[in-house]
Design a protein around this nucleic acid. Sequence first.
DNA 1: ATGCGATTGCGACTCAGTCTCAACTGGCGT
DNA 2: ACGCCAGTTGAGACTGAGTCGCAATCGCAT
Lengths: 171, 171
Amino acid sequence: MKPHRELSIFRKYLEKRGLKLTSERQALFDELFARHEHFEADELLVRLRTKHKKISRATIYRTLDLLVDSGIVGRVRIGESGYRYERLRAGEHHDHLICNECGRVIEFFEPAIESLQDQVCEKYGFLALSHSHQLRGICRQCRPRVSSREAGRAAAAAAVPGGKLRILPTA
Amino acid sequence: MKPHRELSIFRKYLEKRGLKLTSERQALFDELFARHEHFEADELLVRLRTKHKKISRATIYRTLDLLVDSGIVGRVRIGESGYRYERLRAGEHHDHLICNECGRVIEFFEPAIESLQDQVCEKYGFLALSHSHQLRGICRQCRPRVSSREAGRAAAAAAVPGGKLRILPTA
DNA sequence: ATGCGATTGCGACTCAGTCTCAACTGGCGT
DNA sequence: ACGCCAGTTGAGACTGAGTCGCAATCGCAT
């Protein structure tokens, strides 16, 4: 495991405000950086519960808050319910393509869109602090399956009934 | 109150699937088209409770689902919790600028962004069914007040504890 | 090693939204 | 005009995600 630039950022962040790097925070951090790009709070909870030690749901959320606040992790509303989290590589930014069928999340970055956004803000005198941009639909892998199953609009209606959406295994 | 093109769309939608236009559905529809552009489920509940008749929360949500499904109303995740709904003028589409200070929601439409989105989808073989695009920050009216209060990053950190996202209107 | 503020787990709690089910009703068929 | 019955309703229980309060515990500067 390499030195983790992020870990030192986190350390610094904690130090700066007199917080402590507890074993729970460490464990969560490690788990998170072990591999997962996108994940949900309860996913982490389960993973840590089996692997490491008992850790409470509250602690997961509290720690995640710290990570978000320190800028290492991003909190996003994807899907029908709750938040999803994702690691943020410093300076990088991206938006999301989300498959209604398999839940896959594809990241994309389009500089031209970003700059158009800036123009929009300017036009309205709006100071943007953050943004989120998601397209929902059917990914390349699912398209054949879906289109053979039913025609366009039925699929659309079924996919986002407004209620149910499955929770997905983080790709 | 004019003929409401939307009402006939709704009627047709119900008819087509053997559903009924009950007095509750009517009342909700009327309330919604009386004036409100953006609203939350519980807002509607309260308004209908005082004004019209008793109507249950479940019915509000059920009816809203129908309206969303029929394409008349859009469901959006704005803010930290729950959904917001908005009337959709046929054929029109817009995205949102949301003020973290006053909650104001500004709609915008930028064709160039839309077409860039399409390009992104093509690139990934993604079939987009809907999208959401929101910028969060400080609106023109709030900017003077905020900037005099505190400097940039503190405001940013506090204002956007997480990303915000929305779902979409089916169609 | 000590002390004390930060942190933890627990479980109770909230809030938005969903579900169940018995009672009710819209509107077609006659 | 009427009856019928699938569709609809309200009430309240329920769920799931996330938050909170608190007593016990832990990190870490000294």
